[in-house]
């Protein structure tokens, strides 16, 4: 537990973070882009077509990781919001600001790729079921966070407001999912099971795994990259930033 609290405190220190994250960004970019390249080529070119869906299933190699990752980012933002509320840790807010755009883009991409996949597979781009609806709501929540953060110029107050909204939102997502699920059983019998990967062939699964790792690594790299920029911007009046600027 001791090493954990120590790392926690160190991570909260902007200069330590700025220096420590530099190597990580490079490596995460390399691993992320490399895995994505391998996974995508493998998935698009070297796996057999699906018996039922044909080639259109291949979109899952990007769609599924993006959807999962966007959800993970939202949860991470809420956790960071909690950390910020309780300990007023500046790095938590830096994380939120740096991750929120990526989260919004990934959510939008998940929705878009879902629609593209849905048109040939279901015959319709959109179905109001629990999963699609909660992803759509998640996009709205991301946009709300971005809009709120932009609207309040005072960074401390804006950060606190965003933290509260993120926490309220994260509590709401499972409730939304549950209520949509309950609601839609009234209207349409579940004739379509969305992307049920129970009986997926291992040869199709491997590229998915590689792509998931790749996208996660790339996203972590992007977030760390923006966190470093935001740390510099915020601490521009402090001595350690001056030292760095003068030495470079």
């Amino acid at each position: 537990m001791n090493w954990f609290t120590q790392t926690f405190h160190k991570m909260g220190s902007p200069p330590f973070f700025y220096r420590g994250a530099k190597v990580w960004v490079t490596w995460l970019y390399v691993i992320g882009l490399g895995s994505l390249l391998i996974g995508t080529v493998w998935g698009l070119g070297f796996t057999p077509a699906d018996r039922l869906q044909g080639d259109s299933f291949r979109i899952i190699y990007l769609h599924v990781p993006a959807a999962h990752l966007s959800q993970l980012i939202y949860i991470a933002i809420a956790v960071a919001g909690f950390v910020f509320l309780v300990w007023r840790m500046k790095m938590a807010d830096v994380f939120i600001v740096s991750a929120v755009w990526l989260g919004a883009w990934l959510t939008a991409f998940a929705l878009f790729s879902g629609i593209v996949w849905g048109i040939p597979t279901w015959g319709t781009g959109w179905v109001w079921d629990a999963r699609t609806t909660s992803v759509l709501v998640q996009l709205f929540l991301f946009l709300g966070l971005i809009a709120l953060r932009t609207a309040i110029p005072n960074s401390q107050r804006g950060a606190l407001a965003v933290a509260v909204l993120a926490i309220v939102g994260v509590i709401n997502i499972p409730i939304i999912k549950y209520s949509v699920d309950w609601f839609t059983t009234l209207h349409q019998p579940a004739s379509i099971q969305i992307g049920n990967p129970i009986s997926i062939d291992p040869s199709m699964l491997w590229p998915l795994l590689v792509n998931t790792i790749g996208l996660y690594a790339l996203a972590a790299g992007v977030i760390l990259y923006y966190m470093r920029i935001n740390v510099l911007r915020r601490e521009r009046n402090s001595d350690w930033v001056r030292d760095i600027v003068n030495s470079e």
Partner: peptide, 25 residues
């Protein structure tokens, strides 16, 4: 925040969904 009407809608409407669905349902 000046002219907060539209921003308010963006923040609040998604949070209304569960109650709306349960109520209408």
């Amino acid at each position: 925040v000046g002219r907060n009407g539209v921003l308010l809608a963006l923040l609040v409407l998604p949070l209304y969904i569960p109650v709306l669905l349960l109520g209408v349902g």
